[in-house]
Amino acid sequence: MGTVFSFDVRGGRPGAVQAALEKAVAGLHRVNEVFSMYRDDSQLARLSRGELTVADCAPEVAEVLELGAEAERVSDGWFSMRYEGRLDPTGIVKGWAAERAARLLASTPGVCGVSMNGGGDVQLLGAPEPHRPWRVGVADPLRPGGLAAVVSSAGADELAVATSGSYERGAHIVDPRTGRSAVTDLVAVTVVAPTLTWADCWATAAFAMGSRAGLRWLESLPDVEGLLITAGDEVRCTGGLAARLG
């Protein structure tokens, strides 16, 4: 299934913003072409099959693989770029691409705020208007249409909100100790951190860890807050999350 990216860009001349949007969209198409594991001819698919080396690929491939390797280290393997033994960095590409597109838009002269939502993971930059922060609803996985929390960007020039949920389980959320789909008591983990690349990876990793280990691990990361919802409808959050709600 596809991922919907939606942008909300505030400020800037309409012509300049339009041009930046087109550039951002073109960038996302390009990312899709290079990284999609569902296209046999993408560079990543060919790299994964051993038909290309990293040096043969677009420079973004090396960049993403490096970021993914760091995510694997920090998460002790709970975030992984391997699936069924094959290289598959899909788990980091979406957040990375969305963050990059948001930054491109924010660099447009006159733009004061960007909200970029890539498949439910959000990068916020600046503010929608003076004295008003961005506000992001966190969908309540157990109450359709309801919100579990609202995160505010007040006081933060950049803030990302990424959610990993049970709908992802099975494909890319794997227990590194067993190599099988992670058994977790969670239905959703939302991570709030400055950048979407990391927020997305940490949400994936914490989800796989389960509520106890996931919460403890998120607490240990600087500038990272988390909201964890268990299948039993318990809500657990890191100590600093309250300051980000609003």
Binding site: M1, T3, F5, V93, G119, E168
Partner: peptide, 14 residues
């Protein structure tokens, strides 16, 4: 703007 990419087939967008 909204667009679709086939990047992450196992997730459902917000």
């Amino acid at each position: 703007m909204v667009l679709l990419l086939s990047l992450k087939p196992h997730s459902t967008p917000a």
